[in-house]
Amino acid sequence: MSVYEKNNIDSSQVKSHALAILVENQVGALARVVSMFSARGYNIDSLTVAKVTEDENISRITIITSGTRMKIEQIKSQLGRIVLVHKVVDLTSEGDFVSRELIFVKVKSKGEKRVEALRTADIFRAKVVDSTKQSFIFELTGSSDKLNAFIVLMKDLGLVEVARTGSVAISRGSLKIN
């Protein structure tokens, strides 16, 4: 049976999906992937890209997108048409996966708020990577939800700036995707 076949799952439900895309590490590969999304009106909620194998010249792109099942299938096959794309895996529908992102949060505050910021960071297991008399920079890794929660708390404690990587994701278990 083909994955494209209709089944009885409600197809109108919009869900977030993590896609792992292996592309040839060449100029134009990322541009083609990104412009396909914009040309066809699909959203990119987050995107990360880096070279992952020294020998084979492969870069791995992780894209978090959302859509109905039919739309996600369409995104996958449109990605598959791009010559420089070697492999597309929808981690969300293939089974269990882990996903993490990293943020830096710069906070500027005094007195009680400064102490509170440090305490909150401690609860979240954030690391202090820079500190001045008025400010901290926290580094925190985790699921997107956890990071969002941390940012919300920091808003009242002197949040100045956030730098965020976007999600990277990998399937659980011993199997390799390519």
Binding site: Y4, K6, S11, M70, E73, Q74, S77, Q78, G80, R81
Partner: peptide
């Protein structure tokens, strides 16, 4: 494959 289920399921 991208022609499949693009407009009509």
């Amino acid at each position: 494959p991208s022609s499949i289920n693009k407009n009509v399921e």
